[in-house]
Amino acid sequence: MEITRKAYAKINLGLDVTGKRDDGYHLVRMIMQNIDLYDTLTYKLNESGEVNLSASAEGVPTDDSNLICKVAHQLQKEYGVTKGVDITLEKRIPVAAGMAGGSTDGAATYLALNDLWDLGLTKEQLCKLAVKLGADIPYCIIGGTALSEGIGEVLTPIKEMPACHLVIAKPAIAVSTGWVYTELDSKDIPSHPDIDGIRDAIEGGDLKGMCDLIGNVLEDVTTSKYSIIKDIEKILEDNGAIRAFMTGSGPTVFAIYDDKEKAQEGYRAVKESGLAPELFLSEPIDPNK
């Protein structure tokens, strides 16, 4: 038996940090959105009980340190599964990009192995298991457009984001999420994004109103060290983007366009600049449809 799944990337239309728990996890309020950029994973049942992973991209770990393998072993242990799985990962989502590339692969693995191993678990049950391995995984299991709260595990689906065109641009730098949050903890947050306003604009179908309110409290931290992010945003906005902003802890920038040709112009401008070797045209998507 074999199952193939697409694991979609996400962007943050709003990201606020509201506090910190005693265990070190940060409390957040975020608007999350899947986009049409995805990894492809193929799962083949084996009788050996082993979990074997291969990946198309160099530098992606294929041992038990990979979240995909951690998910498989967790399910085996939790439910006494004696069968194994051979997994092939075709990687397209940039690594360490603030787009939940690892978390979405983990989420796809929960969903696929639930079917492959005939576990019969609901998405809610999978989410309870998933949060033990990563705060973004429950959102990636649910997908679509959602308000994410708590440490990321409290999810409220909302109306689909207004139709638009996206340019996704990742510069050739690596940003440590741990460093970003440590820096954030060392200073006051001067202003917080209007998460409820972003949600209202989305549910009202107001693309421009949503773009006007987009905010990410991590951006000032990350761009203080990596000014290239601002340089990319300026190119995109100078070439027709309604708004360009950083997703997650960075360094990836997403730009929102109301016109496909404008998006293509922005894409070409960034490509010519050479600032973002990993560059994609995309659109918002609801994987549940």
Rank of each mutant, 00 (worst) to 15 (best):
G150D: 05
G143H: 08
A55M: 14
S176Y: 10
A7T: 14
R199G: 03
G150I: 07
L166E: 03
K271T: 05
P138A: 05
P251F: 11
D86P: 13
S65E: 08
L111E: 06
V221D: 12
L41K: 06
V175M: 13
M30R: 11
P284Q: 06
D118H: 14
Y181E: 02
Q33H: 13
T145L: 03
L89A: 10
L129A: 14
A146T: 08
L15T: 12
K20H: 04
I137G: 10
V253C: 14
R29W: 02
L236C: 03
L13Q: 05
I229P: 00
L116K: 00
L184I: 01
N114C: 07
V270Q: 02
T122R: 02
I232L: 03
L45M: 14
D200F: 06
V175I: 15
R92N: 15
T4F: 07
D258E: 15
G144H: 08
R243G: 02
I235E: 01
F280D: 12
G178H: 11
E2Y: 06
K91L: 12
D194P: 11
G106L: 01
I228L: 11
G205N: 03
K132V: 09
I228N: 08
L15K: 12
K208P: 01
K10H: 03
I35K: 07
P157S: 04
V131H: 07
L53I: 14
T104Q: 10
N46A: 11
L155N: 02
S249L: 05
V17I: 15
I31S: 07
E203L: 05
T223F: 08
T145N: 06
Y43C: 06
C211Y: 05
V270L: 03
D36H: 14
T4D: 09
A169D: 06
Y79E: 00
G80C: 00
G197Y: 06
Q76K: 15
Q264T: 08
V85T: 03
C164I: 02
D196Y: 12
A97Y: 00
L27H: 07
L236Y: 02
T82N: 15
Q76T: 01
T4M: 12
K123R: 15
L45S: 04
L53K: 03
I168E: 12
L218W: 08
K289F: 10
G178N: 13
E47L: 11
E47W: 09
E50L: 15
S54C: 11
E183M: 11
R5W: 09
S282G: 03
A269I: 02
C127T: 12
P61C: 10
M210L: 14
T247R: 11
G106M: 00
S224K: 10
D16V: 09
I242H: 14
L147D: 04
A174H: 14
T40D: 09
G248S: 09
K132N: 14
